[in-house]
Design a protein around this nucleic acid. Structure first.
Lengths: 142, 142
DNA sequence: GAAGATAGTTGTATGCAGCAAGCATTCCGA
DNA sequence: TCGGAATGCTTGCTGCATACAACTATCTTC
């Protein structure tokens, strides 16, 4: 079993999880907004954080605003931009969703020790960092 | 950093990797066909292995056949089905692609020890297995 | 031999993604 | 200070992956 194959299996597992418990709203983007809300979240930052096109994020944010989960307020420092804030119901939905998924994962990994989970988390994060760094180096080099 | 967040980052890294080195053909399906080719690969098995709808796999296989990477031969034991075989050029493309990605990943993880890579591979695979098992249990229980 | 199960294909719809164009605003150099 | 370039964001269009439903052809079972 190679790393690529293992990753394939993991992505499949996540697909099954998502498919069986679909979310109405783009929860990932909502979570990202909350994570950086204190510093006045701009759409552009979300795009680069997710490595997605700004237009993709723009539509996701528009959906969140339509659903009443996020509010836009004009940025006083930059007339082109607006800052994003999670609303009351946005917080509620996000909390519920995160609680739900955490419970699922905790149940699935009930045989794991906390150290094992920590180790996987750390390794995954490190791998992601190293892959991204490498791609950025390759992009600059060319 | 939670496991979910780490996974998010990892998926982002893979997305960047794929985006910067796009593949023309559905390589994942091609690899799966080769992996089980010895036992006469049926479309249905691919679908369940990937946890995807048969129609999705059907289109992917059709694309592979159109591209000359895979051949269909009638199954002598079952007139409804056909067995799939990777062609010469399919093997070539698959080898090239896998070599390329392996080189990228090896370069990105150049600071890792083989044991660390093994540990991540094992953990990921175990996590995927546990998540899938849990979902199947939940499905049967309901 | 007929009814139902099964393998696969195709039509349709949806969601997510990117690119290109455009608008409003801001920044910067002559 | 003014005009062109850059920036933040939105919208139109397109392509891809996916699911579901309907269908055909074949197999299985009674």
């Amino acid at each position: 079993m190679t790393l690529v194959e293992a990753f394939h299996d993991a992505i499949k597992a996540v697909r099954v999880l998502k498919q069986r418990h679909p979310t109405q709203a783009p929860i990932g983007v909502l979570a990202a907004i909350r994570r950086r809300e204190s510093s006045g979240c701009h759409l552009k930052e979300l795009a680069s954080e997710h490595a997605l096109d700004p237009s993709t994020i723009s539509r996701a944010v528009a959906a969140l605003v339509r659903a009443g989960l996020v509010e836009r307020t004009a940025d006083p420092l930059d007339g082109r931009a607006s800052t994003l804030h999670v609303t009351e119901s946005g917080h509620t939905l996000l909390d519920q969703t995160q609680t739900f998924y955490e419970a699922r994962i905790t149940a699935a990994l009930r045989d794991w020790t906390p150290e094992e989970i920590d180790a996987l988390t750390t390794s995954l994060s490190r791998m992601a960092h190293d892959l991204i760094t490498q791609e950025e180096e390759a992009r600059c080099a060319q």
